[in-house]
Nucleic acid binder design. Structure first.
Lengths: 138, 138
DNA sequence: AAATAAAACTGTAATGATTACAAGGGGGTG
DNA sequence: CACCCCCTTGTAATCATTACAGTTTTATTT
């Protein structure tokens, strides 16, 4: 399927900028906003970084792309020693510990060639309290 | 075990500031740096935010605490649709797709009361290339 | 083709988290 | 008492992200 159609299907107008960003994203490896911007501004000299942000937000909203959480961006700390997952509620922005599901225990040499030191499992969605509030108010 | 001893065991001098930060971290729920700072400066009026950063970095280095990756601060994007994990190499800062291990498929209602929409599994460690380079140069 | 409205795009400024860095302070040791 | 080391502090710099208002482009209607 052509990129144009992929965007159209999701209700995104397939402008040149959006096509290029989509294609860069598909070809590259987890690029940062700046990487996308730096690389595309050769082809699209008028490109603005704000547009890259806007476009990525749009893609995420329309389920065409995902925002990753990685070690680059850590702004919460935890001290619990029992393995557990984290649930981030997108409504209230709270983080809850989840013990029903745990990050897989990964041996250091589980993945050929890699030395794995830590695994984090993060879930995203709506927490019980926010679900109740949504139901009540609608 | 007393907090003082927990720190000492890891080779961290148990200063008042560090004790308080450790105890706050243990009692609170995934606090941000600012939350820790705001709450402790009542007790420790001279506290500086830099100290909170320094102390947390120290705890992480000594394996007393973990930095979480969450949706709050995401700065990489991905478009792949096959479920896969991400491996963040702490030496070269690259992110690799890992297909040998995948995030557990989590049904929306898998966790009592929660609505789970997405799961991300992130590993941390050293990638094959960096491991080879370390070996060669030492 | 002109007129209009809506949607995309842009640039600048503001915000917020984090880091860099150089200097201050306190406690223990010789 | 002098010295040194480590902890702590404050300011300034950096970097990613967002806010916002204005401009350009595109599509639509006349």
């Amino acid at each position: 399927m052509e990129t144009k159609d992929i965007l159209s299907r999701r209700g995104i107008a397939p402008s040149l900028t959006r096509l290029k960003i989509y294609e860069y994203l598909r070809a590259a490896s987890h690029p940062s906003v700046d990487e996308i911007y730096q690389n595309l501004k050769e082809e699209i000299p008028t490109l603005s970084k704000t547009t890259v942000y806007n476009t990525l937000h749009l893609f995420v909203e329309k389920d065409l792309a995902k925002a990753l959480f990685t070690d680059f961006s850590k702004n919460r700390y935890d001290i619990k020693d029992v393995p557990h997952a984290h649930f981030h509620c997108t409504e209230c922005d709270e983080i809850h510990d989840i013990h029903e599901i745990t990050p897989p225990r990964i041996a250091e040499d589980a993945i050929e060639g890699y030395l794995a030191k830590e695994a984090q499992l993060t879930l995203k969605g709506v927490c019980p309290r926010c679900r109740r509030q949504n139901t009540n108010s609608q």
